[in-house]
Write a protein that binds this DNA or RNA. Structure first.
Lengths: 189, 189
DNA sequence: CCCAGCATGTAACGAGTTACATGATTCG
DNA sequence: CGAATCATGTAACTCGTTACATGCTGGG
């Protein structure tokens, strides 16, 4: 039972889903391709954590709708109260930053402008989702029992971390432009 | 040639290192165990990106000191100017947050207090390193050519992201305490 | 005397990505 | 007519972790 498995079970505690649904819903929180999810769901079914029913559709291929079992629910309940392991981030930009002096001023600037626009896009995306959520439930997000509460917390987390990254990029870019205006530009004359 | 390989080459552009050194230096930026680094170094040597010399030591086992080749340097130069792929974060707390309503108020509080203290530790750690750096080079961190510049940028990134996470945890904890003071506590009377 | 740190490696396994494979519908 | 979305799966591969394996030094 790995983290991804608990992630899937966690989503299924809110209601039945297809593998495809799970992939979509999981995306913002934990990246995983369908090729990882489908076999894992089968394994979870073997062990009795979930069960599926086949739902025929008109004009569409059949669905396998998975529902969590009581065993699955109790496994999630046990998991969720255990301490969370620290987050792991793998960021190529960090490694590139470590050897920036090989890149030159323009490339460096491009690198950080790209990341800045990426972070701003994320910020806007999460902000929009948050607005949608506010409209959906008219400011009643702070009820701990409501399924909206978690979404509210997570959207705010997304905004926070995207903003802090954007701020860092802004700061780096301002440093780079100062440098270009002093040392770098002066030397090139 | 994967990201880890470029990370190692990036460090080696600053000077020769043993596999062990590389593992230590890489740690803050990209988690990798020695079991991943040693075979990768051997592969990089086969392809001519690095070369090693055996350095005997007194009272210690021999070292393999790796140095980057011209081929390796040009590979890094090409890599560093290419756009960085977006960061990937895997955080168990995010998945647990998604099904908080199964956890209960006390467990939830513990979960976020643990993450808060973790984030604060990281903040302090990076801040201390930053102070060390400032003392080391007396405020001259903003020279793009100096090896201190990258460290300066990265330490600030570390502080930024740790702070934003701590702020998020603080915010969640304040929400939880409000809830306990209103709905939750009121219901339990 | 045991533990932490330096120093290097391999083997087995689990996690994650990319590519292969299929097939219907809807929208531009 | 092609691209995107829904929908499911497998196979081959790379990436990453854990455990196995060794050996020496210095400090508590």
């Amino acid at each position: 039972m790995n983290t991804l498995a608990y992630g899937l079970l966690g989503i299924l505690t809110r209601g039945p889903c297809t593998g495809y649904d799970l992939m979509i819903k999981l995306q913002p929180f934990w990246e995983a391709k369908h090729s990882q999810i489908y076999p894992l769901l089968a394994r979870l079914e073997e062990r009795g954590y979930v069960a599926h029913t086949i739902v025929p559709q008109q004009n569409k291929p059949n669905k396998k709708v998975y529902a969590i079992s009581e065993q699955g629910r109790s496994a999630v309940r046990q998991w969720v109260v255990e301490p969370a392991s620290p987050p792991v981030t793998r960021d190529e930009l960090v490694l590139k930053t470590y050897c920036l002096w090989l890149a030159g001023a323009e490339s460096t600037l491009k690198l950080f402008q790209q990341r800045l626009s990426h972070s701003r896009q994320r910020m806007e995306h999460f902000s929009q989702r948050l607005e949608e959520l506010k409209k959906e439930c008219g400011g009643r997000m702070t009820d701990m029992d409501s399924p909206h509460f978690s979404r509210y917390l997570l959207l705010n987390k997304g905004i926070c971390s995207a903003r802090s990254q954007a701020e860092w990029c802004d700061w780096v870019i301002s440093l780079l432009k100062k440098e270009q205006g002093t040392n770098f530009f002066d030397h090139s004359i």
